[in-house]
Design a protein around this nucleic acid. Structure first.
Lengths: 156, 156
DNA sequence: AGCAATCGGAACGAATCAGTCCGATTGGAA
DNA sequence: TTCCAATCGGACTGATTCGTTCCGATTGCT
């Protein structure tokens, strides 16, 4: 349950790109310098994020990248999926592939979809715009979640 | 953003153990047979789950394991953490370790704690008891999440 | 006291991931 | 119009982590 370094870097990088907002195109070199991410890695990330449609890239001299959408409509889930691929906790969430041995008999499989959606929802609820706001409360989320991880004890 | 196979197996295995509930001690061999998990792997999981305090183990002839707590008070987060270690999306969530190069300047770091809590909360909200209930709604979650995973149709 | 069955930890192999490099494409300048 | 320079895009290599398997230590029953 940890984010890959690439995805982590991507978030930092998108956040940096958001600061340059719509105004100027920023090249990967500048983004790398601002974030401290190694240049080759930054280039790789720019590439993937562009392919996913989160960044618009312009090639040639003076080229660079720019957010394809306003920061408020780009979520963490979008970024993570752009870098790591679809968010699925287990392989059995994908109905196409049938790799699990006990498919039909498995008691927990039906519930995995809900769990997967919950985790994905948690990431989808945070946008790039949220990452620029007050640190303490990122707060576009429903208050219901707070108790769940405040004391983190789930009592029967 | 995917669960490790070990953690996945652990959930299935705990679910299987829950079905034997408090009554009889079950040995790793039986659990492996019921779930289809390779025996050595099942043994490893039993080991870790016991160390984490989720299972109580009895050695010797006729020994086995048993849930240490009622199914309702064992959450997915507990199981995942027992197998994979603490849930932390990024290394910078841990305030002890300072590995990230730009620590203080990082804009997104303050928000990661919230994101981490949300994801963890999503897992903590689902208990072993929930995994035995009706497939459609495991739900303590808000209905907002539904659209996110409505597409992936669970077949009961 | 002996035996059998179990848990616990250690070593091996495989897969994935992070990082780096080079080629293809594009825009501007002469 | 031609050349050049800077960029994105994909392919390769090395390292880390994960998954699996095996063997030893411990414990309860006979």
């Amino acid at each position: 349950m940890r984010l890959s370094s690439l995805a982590d870097y991507a978030v930092v990088m998108m956040s940096a790109a958001a600061r340059h907002c719509g105004r100027a195109k920023v090249n990967a070199t500048t983004l790398a310098a601002e974030t401290g991410i190694p240049l080759p890695t930054a280039q790789k990330l720019v590439s993937r994020l562009s392919t996913a449609g989160l960044l618009e890239s312009s090639r040639g001299t003076g080229g660079g990248v720019r957010l394809a959408r306003p920061p408020a409509s780009i979520s963490l889930a979008d970024i993570v999926e752009a870098v790591e691929g679809p968010i699925q906790m287990t392989t059995c969430v994908d109905n196409e592939r049938h790799e699990c041995a006990l498919e039909g008999a498995c008691q927990v499989r039906p519930h995995m979809g809900v769990v997967n959606g919950a985790v994905r929802g948690a990431l989808a609820a945070v946008s790039l715009a949220d990452l620029s706001r007050a640190p303490a409360k990122a707060g576009a989320q429903s208050p219901d979640w707070t108790p769940a991880f405040a004391g983190e004890q789930v009592s029967a």
